[in-house]
Amino acid sequence: MRKKEYLPKILETGANELEVIDFRMYEELEDGTIYEWVLGVNVAKVKEVIQRPSNIFRSPGMPPEVEGLAKIREEVIPIVNLAKWMKIKVPQQKSDKYVIVMEFLREVIGVLVHEAKRIRRIKWADIKKPPASIDEKLGGKVVGVIEIEDGQLLLLLDFEGILDELGMIKVFNVEDKEEYAKSEKSYNILILDDSPVARKIIRKILEKDGHKVYEVESGIEGLEYLESLAQQAEQEGVDITDKLQLIISDIEMPGMDGLTFTKKVKEHPVFSKIPIVINTSLSDKATVDKTRFVNADAHLVKFDTKDLLHIVREYAIKK
């Protein structure tokens, strides 16, 4: 009964959903017309939406896409100018009226936007890969697209990728070599993450520690991979844990999110033998509660080398 007290509705209904803040950016095209970009970010990353602060101060060494620093609720945070990052010409009648204050990857940042519209509930299964032209325009930093009313496309932005491009992602404890010398054991580890940046960082940490890493981009691909692995194991007369000793999964992935994937794996008679660690940019209590409800073995916040290697050595099945 205790789990029911904090069970999120999206898991209670098995809807495989997320909530996003729908916000808009406006671009003046060469012919003088105005294009409306419909964009979105996971509500779980958002602390609040506020009006643009009156005082934003530049600091030496900041990338041009960072407007400056602002004090918001007694905390000084960087403010990213999304229009500058998108390299769009802003119409004179439009301005950066709002700041979406986000918290993820142990950081709090603000993002200047033209308009904040509403909160939408979206099914992960309805999120598709972006058209190549849109993905190229936004530097490959679109997690997925979903069709909304009037045939418009809402684009979910990869803010982790954007911060990495701006040099604002921190990988903690990467030089802690004395305590975390190369592991004595080598494990086969599956990573699920739709972000190439995240996969690259995690792969580098794990391979440096001596492990064999496999990658997929979504929960759907993860289940397909495990099905294939189970067939191989059966043909060879070995247990699936001889093939794979640990799964590390993100939460936010198109098609099937990491929580739904974890729930399905833990309910499977064969796959459930493999430990699963939820590795996410989200560290709030609600997210931790969700990972517990789907019976994940551990929750890990990106990107801490020391924590990641500690989790691997604690939870990977010893063969």
Rank of each mutant, 00 (worst) to 15 (best):
V270K: 07
D126K: 09
G140A: 06
K200D: 15
V43T: 13
M168Y: 15
D164C: 11
Q232E: 15
A181E: 15
T262P: 00
Q92N: 09
E175S: 15
I10K: 11
E147V: 08
G210K: 13
K185A: 11
V301Y: 10
V216I: 14
L163K: 13
S272E: 07
K177A: 08
I72F: 10
V143C: 04
D257E: 06
P60A: 08
K129R: 09
I134S: 06
Q245P: 05
V76R: 09
G61W: 15
N188K: 13
I274E: 01
A44C: 04
E221K: 13
Y180I: 06
Q92T: 11
A296K: 01
F159V: 05
E107C: 02
P131E: 04
V20F: 07
R199Y: 11
Y315S: 01
S272M: 05
L105Y: 11
V288L: 09
F159L: 13
L105R: 07
W85G: 00
I148V: 14
K208A: 15
L190H: 07
K182W: 06
L308I: 14
N42S: 12
K47W: 05
K319G: 09
G140W: 05
A198L: 10
W37F: 14
R73T: 06
V113Y: 07
I127L: 10
A70C: 03
T260L: 03
R313Q: 14
V301R: 06
L154P: 03
L7K: 10
A298L: 05
E103I: 02
E221V: 01
E217K: 13
V145E: 01
L192Y: 08
Y315V: 02
H114R: 04
N42F: 03
I202M: 14
A298Q: 09
K123P: 02
L246C: 05
I134P: 00
N55T: 12
G40S: 08
L11R: 04
H211S: 10
E207W: 14
D289F: 09
F23G: 05
D135N: 14
D126G: 04
I278Y: 05
E227D: 13
I201A: 06
Q92W: 08
L18I: 12
P275S: 08
K204D: 14
E252Q: 14
F172M: 11
K87V: 02
L226I: 03
M256R: 03
E107Q: 15
K89G: 02
I50Y: 09
K45Y: 07
V277Q: 04
L105H: 12
K123L: 09
L105V: 10
R120A: 03
D239Q: 11
F172D: 12
K318G: 04
T241L: 06
Q231Y: 11
K141D: 03
M102V: 12
P131D: 07
E234Y: 08
S195C: 12
I88P: 00
S183I: 02
D164N: 15
V216W: 09
V90N: 04
K319S: 10
V145R: 00
D135W: 01
V143T: 10
K47P: 00
V38L: 08
L308E: 09
R118A: 08
L246F: 10
P53M: 05
I162M: 13
K71D: 09
G32P: 04
T291F: 04
A83I: 02
V301T: 15
K212V: 12
V99W: 02
I240V: 11
Y214G: 02
L18Q: 04
A298E: 12
E103M: 06
A316D: 08
K117P: 02
D164M: 13
V265Q: 00
S249L: 05
D289G: 00
K263P: 00
